[in-house]
Amino acid sequence: MTFVLDRFDTNGFVAATLAEDLGDIGDITSAAVIPQSARFAGVMTSRDAITVAGLELAEAFFRALDPAATIERLVEDGDRVAAGTALMQLSGLARAMLTAERSALNTIQHLSGIATMTRAYVDRIMGTGATLLDTRKTIPGLRVLEKYATRMGGATNHRMGLWDAAMIKDNHVAVAGSVGEAVRRAAEAGIASIIVEVDRIDQIEPALAAGATHLLLDNMEPSTLRGAVTLVGGRVPTEASGGVTLEKIRAIAETGVTYVSVGRLTQSAPAADIGLDFQMEG
């Protein structure tokens, strides 16, 4: 398998997911009902129009239990497909196929759901010049996968964790005493990327003067955002965040902000409807 993500153990994830399902005894239903030598052929199909993400991971579950399985991916991650599109054909040992089925489907349904919602947001702001960002509001342990899915939907990843940029929020400011002091401390620590959350116009100049490299304009209405963007005047990138819905995002993006970040991409995306139909071979 060629699916490689930075800071993610794909083989470990597949093994742990299967172990969670198999427990100490294994797939007692398949073992009791399906002959050991029986073979299945199947087709994985999208039942809705979706943006695909997670095909190689789904394949990995089947290969983990039947390394000799014949598997053909019919589309690629990032593809937009119509309802009824066949995504993958596979053939192999029936017990292995059935045991891996749920883990494979759970994964591709979740990731494709995220990619599909992300694509809807990207489409909505097309032509505004703004870039869609995801957030750190991810399921613990699945961040790398979920952020991969947002990329498949056309978004750009924001911070991957607490380590790759400073983000000074209201609680940091409360402890430091002011926006300017919080930013000054981060700059003195030698941090190159300093994102500063501001929820008032009067916080912008102190943040910039102290060394902010990116302003997160939090929960501002479009009229306020437009004024903030004008005040910043291109000195640093600007990001609109907070309460962004599909209905609101175009008006927000049209204010001139550099980025719009949306937590619901990974918090609230419904699973895509993807099924897998098997039949006996021979």
Rank of each mutant, 00 (worst) to 15 (best):
T238F: 02
W163I: 13
E281K: 15
R185S: 10
A240N: 05
A272L: 09
M280F: 12
V257K: 01
I252L: 15
N106R: 11
V198G: 06
G92S: 08
V198Y: 05
A82C: 11
A68K: 12
G154K: 06
G42T: 02
V43I: 15
T138I: 09
D79R: 07
T135I: 00
E56V: 02
V179L: 05
T138K: 07
V33E: 11
T266D: 05
T213N: 01
G113V: 02
T118R: 04
R7K: 14
G275F: 11
R159C: 03
G154C: 06
N171R: 09
D273P: 03
A210I: 05
A187K: 11
A130M: 00
A130L: 00
V14G: 02
T99H: 05
E205Y: 06
I168D: 00
V262I: 13
V260L: 00
F61N: 04
L216D: 03
A271P: 01
I108M: 09
H214G: 06
A120S: 13
T10E: 10
A83W: 07
T135E: 04
A182G: 08
M280D: 14
K248P: 03
G141Q: 12
V198H: 04
G153H: 02
G282K: 11
T245H: 10
F8S: 01
T230Y: 11
V244H: 05
R143E: 06
L276A: 07
I201G: 07
L133Q: 03
D48R: 12
T245W: 13
D9G: 10
T131N: 00
E72F: 08
L55G: 03
G227M: 15
G233N: 10
A240E: 03
I249Y: 02
R250F: 02
H158D: 06
S241L: 07
D24P: 09
T116P: 00
I34A: 07
G180F: 01
A100C: 08
M160N: 14
I204C: 04
